Amino acid sequence: MAEDVRCGIPSDRLAGYAAYFGIPIELLADQGRASNDEALLAALFAAREEAVTPQFALWKNLGADFRRQYCADNTDAYMASLLQVLRGVHLLHLLYPPAREIHRGCLQIRGVDGQALNGRGSLFHQGEALPFVAGVSRFGGNLHLTCHFRDSRLLGRLMTEDPLRHFALSRRKPFYLDWLGVGDCLSGPATCAFMQCHTERLEAVKGQNPDELFRQSCLAVRRQAGPVPGDP
């Protein structure tokens, strides 16, 4: 294609290239446009994203609207404010009702990755650590926490009220959030399960490395006996 563009090609072949990549023909016909031009790259990546979008009605009808709303809800300014509230290491207590076993873990919110906060965590089950990666974003009036376990077999999604909506929520000491969600079962039949989760941020000592605090917290949680129903 590059040779065709350089040597000059019929407009119908150029139109074919544009149709194949899903971009306006003007982006290819402009001889003054470099191959790394920002507008051209943006159009190519947008077309690729559209091409891999699952082809069923909900995505086809709501995909573009969802992306616009998601971008509006997760601006750079909002992400910076949310990071100020959530950054740090949080203790995690997870319950799968009606089961009464309480699972403990740690979650570290580390920074901003595009239009979401990124983090990592570890959940302890039957003495084993289950590491996961996490992302936090807003949609409407709620925060969404997505946890993808590194074995690529477990996925969880939790929701809670956006703490930035209310001054009192964001200023809690200690700061905590209560989440509700669904995810894959840790044990038993391979089915989805309802989840209740409580997270509480640890107050770091001034100058303490947050990665070291996360490591120490994971070790401490792993060594502790699991809580039982009735514990505070």
Rank of each mutant, 00 (worst) to 15 (best):
L83F: 08
T75Q: 06
H103L: 08
N118I: 07
Y70S: 13
N74C: 03
R87T: 11
G105W: 01
A116N: 10
N118T: 05
K60L: 14
G111E: 12
W59T: 08
R120I: 01
F66I: 11
F66K: 03
Q126K: 09
V89E: 01
Y70M: 04
T53C: 10
A47Q: 11
H103W: 12
F124M: 04
V112T: 08
R110Q: 10
A77N: 08
R68H: 14
L94E: 12
E128L: 13
G114N: 02
Y78T: 07
T53M: 08
A57F: 15
R120Y: 00
L123A: 06
V52C: 07
R104E: 04
N61T: 12
F45A: 13
A47F: 05
Y70A: 09
L91A: 14
Q108N: 07
P98R: 00
S122R: 05
Q55R: 15
G127M: 03
K60A: 15
D113M: 03
L95A: 09
E128T: 12
L82Q: 11
W59V: 14
R67I: 06
Q69L: 03
L58Y: 04
A51S: 11
Q84A: 09
A116C: 11
V52F: 10
F56E: 14
L58D: 12
G114I: 00
A64G: 15
H93M: 01
Q55Y: 06
L117H: 05
A72D: 15
S81W: 02
S122K: 03
Q69F: 05
R110C: 05
P98N: 01
G119L: 01
L117Y: 03
P97R: 01
H93Y: 13
L92K: 01
G119R: 00
L62P: 05
G114K: 03
